[in-house]
Design a protein around this nucleic acid. Structure first.
Lengths: 194, 194, 194, 194
DNA sequence: TTTTAATCGAGACGGTACGTCGAGTCTTGCT
DNA sequence: AGCAAGACTCGACGTACCGTCTCGATTAAAA
């Protein structure tokens, strides 16, 4: 029998998310334990197990709560200049991935996705999906404006843009810089142009 | 004081790598334990701890040993037709990533890289580096043959090719098919052409 | 922070003591392991480490629990005939030391006392002390009845009685028989008489 | 096949005994390990296992070597005054047991005897037997001189003398003093007199 | 004096148990 | 009912030693 959400303690929920977020920065995701979260939050372990299916889910919730505090609209600006607009997002993504604070948690989430399909669904739906969708939307608009090839497969186009960024970020083959962002943008757009 | 490699038991080394490789297929990397490897290999735990710094290192060694048994030359063929040659590797990579047997281990290695920098170095040097280098070599040859842009940054070009593949593979946003491989190849090469 | 005894599992406590007692008979004290006790008792190792400071403490508790199940009054009978009363205890002690079942555990406890002062305190307080006190009490009564020397140092008198028994038992210089018990009794009482 | 004693390395033998004796004082018998002895002695472990059956045997050998360096004759003086002669040994034994340096090792040896019958034989033959025999000899002489009861069982008489000392020493029920030695001597001799 | 074979230092090996940590479940008493 | 607290079973961790087993490198007896 699932617990009754209406009786849930808001105070505990917040304390848990805060503790999880803090601890993930202090000790890293791998050394983060449910016990430590409970202790730091002043909460029984059961309260965590009751409301979250896994350590990753708690951290994801905490991460989303932190991000959505200032819930800037995800949708990209449409200045009419595809190149400029896309360059903007790509730079933003690179900046986020290069930021050691955010990066650690994101890394953990991507790691955790690899062997927990249910968790992977959560991350895709709530975190990555919307971001990628925003880019896709902008590309589709450009396509309809005739600025991109008509036969373009938009999702693939998105991957052509962000795939290189994630590859470099995950493999740490080279540093993530703004110049890199612009190079990737330029190359990808050339491929996508009519 | 480090152990003396000349006194190392070859029989134990092999048994450990075999056991690790088998077990990672049977139970997955996350549920793989040093204790189980030792038990399966008929070996004391200390023998593992003596020669490998981590579980990941054992699995990597086992993976490389399996791969290198038939050490097909990594360097790409150069038929003169860049598009064909590149399409070949991209298809091969996609096939490998789509293969559930190989894929599991590769996923684990990439996962492990994220929070163990020393291990990341090992994987880059011994596994990923050579593969990417082979592609880079072929691209550079094409560039020198005037088939690709003269101002091309080859490492970025490699990422433009494989980044999308890994992105889709890690995020599981869509299936990895041969058609997908060809689409990515076509798009990327358009970007790289003079 | 020490654990809360009121939340202790009585079922686990009993299972542990039983398992320890059984195993000490089966394999002997030296080959007895915490791990085996836990396994036999169907209990986590931590539960043992939580409540007992050492292997010896567990065995002592088990031994005392077994002994105190039929808690025959330790105090000696006082028939008025010192010689008879003392001969009774001495015979009883000899019988106990000669009994291979009880003897094994007692040996282990005495052994363990030698290099664990805290454990030695426990054994003295809870096992040996009361036994020796009972003899001391009977001797003191006899002394007050004028049957023993007035200037007698009672604790030394007790040692004169039991010391030889333990000496022979520990050194295994000769078998412990009832005749031996009587010889020691007779000799010691001659020394203690007025 | 037993090793050939004529090829034995005297230097190693000495180094091992010295290391064992030193270490037993530094860390105690229980924490003493064969590995530590070998390391300290600059000797391979096998060299120890080749020549000694157990840790106890090494320590016993070391102890005897130290004791026998000044191999004072064990036999007691016979001044004609049994009481004086016996008081002498009893005091000597008490002094030895009270000496924290010697006592530790002796404790360990007696402990080890309890669950290693072969080792017990060694200790009895080479260490305790001779000491007790010396007392027995002196008592027998006194008996033949008519100073002790004619029907006296000499071994029991010896136990009556030393049993109390060991009892107090092993159980640590009270301190071992010279006064105590004299009290025991006096009481025991009263029992043994005609 | 040379051979030769056992002993030697060194330390890797297969094992067993250690004492600790954290997972996820269960129980108790409070709110 | 949910909650804080924390004891519970379980399983793995990484370490310490055990006693056995190679490895050359001495080293002392036999040839």
């Amino acid at each position: 029998m699932p617990p009754d959400p209406s009786r849930r303690s808001e105070r505990s929920r917040r304390a848990i998310l805060t503790a999880a977020t803090d601890l993930v920065h202090e000790v890293g995701y791998r050394k983060l334990t449910i016990e430590a979260i409970a202790a730091r939050a002043g909460v029984g372990k059961q309260t965590i197990y009751r409301w979250w299916p896994s350590k990753g889910a708690v951290v994801l919730d905490g991460f989303l709560a932190a991000v959505n505090e200032n819930p800037d609209d995800l949708s990209l600006p449409d200045t009419g200049d595809v190149a400029a607009d896309i360059r903007g997002v790509v730079r933003a993504i690179v900046a986020e991935l290069a930021d050691p604070t955010l990066s650690g948690t994101t890394r953990a989430l991507m790691t955790e996705m690899q062997d927990d399909p249910e968790f992977a669904d959560m991350v895709r739906e709530r975190l990555l999906g919307p971001q990628l969708q925003a880019i896709a939307d902008r590309l589709r608009a450009a396509q309809e404006a005739g600025q991109l090839r008509a036969d373009l497969d938009v999702p693939v186009a998105v991957e052509l843009l962000v795939g290189p960024l994630y590859h470099r970020w995950l493999l740490r083959t080279a540093p993530l810089t703004e110049a890199y962002a612009d190079t990737v943008t330029e190359l990808a757009l050339r491929a996508l142009s009519p």
